[in-house]
Design a protein around this nucleic acid. Sequence first.
DNA 1: TTGTAAGCGTTATCAG
DNA 2: CTGATAACGCTTACAA
Lengths: 325, 325
Amino acid sequence: MKPKLEDVAKLANVSKTTVSRVLNNRGYLSQKTIDKVNEAMEILNYQPNSAARQLFQQKTEIIGLLFPTVANPFFGELIQDLERKLYKEGYKVIIGNSMNDSEKEEYYLNQLLSNQVDGLIVGTHNRGIQQYQKDNLPIVAIDRFMNTDIPIIESNNYYGGQIATERLIEKGAKKIVHTTGPSELETPTHRRMQAYTDTMKKNNLDPLIYHLDFNISYEEKNDIFYRIFNENPDLDGIFASNDIDAIMLMQIAVSLNKRIPEDIKVVGYDGTELIRYLYPNLTTVVQPVKKIADKALSVLIQRLKEEKTEQEYILDVYLWEGTSS
Amino acid sequence: MKPKLEDVAKLANVSKTTVSRVLNNRGYLSQKTIDKVNEAMEILNYQPNSAARQLFQQKTEIIGLLFPTVANPFFGELIQDLERKLYKEGYKVIIGNSMNDSEKEEYYLNQLLSNQVDGLIVGTHNRGIQQYQKDNLPIVAIDRFMNTDIPIIESNNYYGGQIATERLIEKGAKKIVHTTGPSELETPTHRRMQAYTDTMKKNNLDPLIYHLDFNISYEEKNDIFYRIFNENPDLDGIFASNDIDAIMLMQIAVSLNKRIPEDIKVVGYDGTELIRYLYPNLTTVVQPVKKIADKALSVLIQRLKEEKTEQEYILDVYLWEGTSS
DNA sequence: TTGTAAGCGTTATCAG
DNA sequence: CTGATAACGCTTACAA
């Protein structure tokens, strides 16, 4: 059906080898032959079969990206940036959104590791991943703790949690709630939570933490957030583990006739470009998305070249000072 | 390096054929052989080589997704949903974010059409795509006009533009600005723009349109938006072609001490779940993201099965009535 | 400067 | 129930 090298060769009256040479600009070729072959390719609308190429070359020029979701602006911007940079380096990306579903994560891992990708950038907390790195497929982890020798790029989560909590306390909040991910998982949010707890205690305040499942709907989340206000009528501070949650909580606070920041002070986390333009008033801890992407890419490329890399890279965060606290 | 079928075969003292059979559950096999082979696979940590499989089977189980960006919530949610549904059908996705850069689009098309994908869902307005469908690779377009026989899934853009404009007029706005994409490109926003223009004229109002390039930064966009206010001090209505722009414009309006909706009424477009939770007050035209994804998928699957499909599918939109107008 | 032939790792056919 | 062999489409030694 689809034309192959051989068809081009026949039409141009040359051998497959010659066509291949033209295709890849390799070896000596007369201009006449080159033109002839190119013409034949044009006519047949020839596209090389990449499976065949991959089989021979043992590489795909594809990098797998494994993240929980693409719909959250933090991951959205990160993935966007990674894709752009990988494109510039000649790679395409295959994306798996695990939604923190470990079955799905495992499926993707198995698929992607079947020689489908030349490397992997993971932003999920998959444990099963450990068994695979033996095959020395280059892998880089973003913002996820995994006790293997996979290099990790992360922002300073403890410091982020600390400045967020301190900000609220400085501004006079006493009853401060922290919302975060599920407690069972080893995610970077744990360090933020730890920093929150430490900072609260240091200031003789009681930590109050709400754990939310990752993959609940906006609607369910909304319900839980309402409950937080109901259960804590004297609430005057919120440190949310991401900006979406922070803003949703603010919306609810406003609908309950609370004033921000007078009655309730809020700090979010992530500080994506999108949110900084949509909600410039939100005080939030800004993660350096572009730098994270840069670093992940450069480390991955080092690994692809079989160069040695560090085990951990920690990038700075800073506080975007809005008026929400 | 990596173990292959042959290595497993040797270790298990059987032929490659047998191993392949075990791998694919095909044909009659004694339990003893099955166990033996599985054990050998375990030991070697064997992963089948997908390039070889693809070469033989002539398919990849990969669908290409070609969209302008993943960082905008509309595309983010759409892509998220497509990925989830495709995963359920056994497909992986390869993503290209063209950023409306036609060179990049073409590169991706060439790559993806080299037998790298079994099908394509495009949300970019690529013209070059026309030449390819000859190879009858199944393609579905989302919300993009392309005068070929590629099936198109879109929401009712004209109606959306109409109800948005009517809303503003009903609420008393007279000097209404519409922001939209570049004028050269044939995008769905054109129909919204056309509806805006028609509706304005029908009400004896002057249309006033600002065209914005797709791939400008938030910063540049912000500057342009400020200019809109400077150039139109008597502005009292805004119909933005997406919610991000609508909200950015609202932020600026507020910073200029305009009240919303008293001084300026605003209507956005897209109505993603994210925005409806973050900015429930924004009046906006809601596109049925999930239905679009559903339809795109089912049409693509029909095409994959070589079944006939309609040429165009138009889905309903509705107005989310916030307090911004 | 061009061509022949072997091989990449898998699967299907056909024979036993 | 199991095995030898050809084929998928391409690239690269090696030969001419």
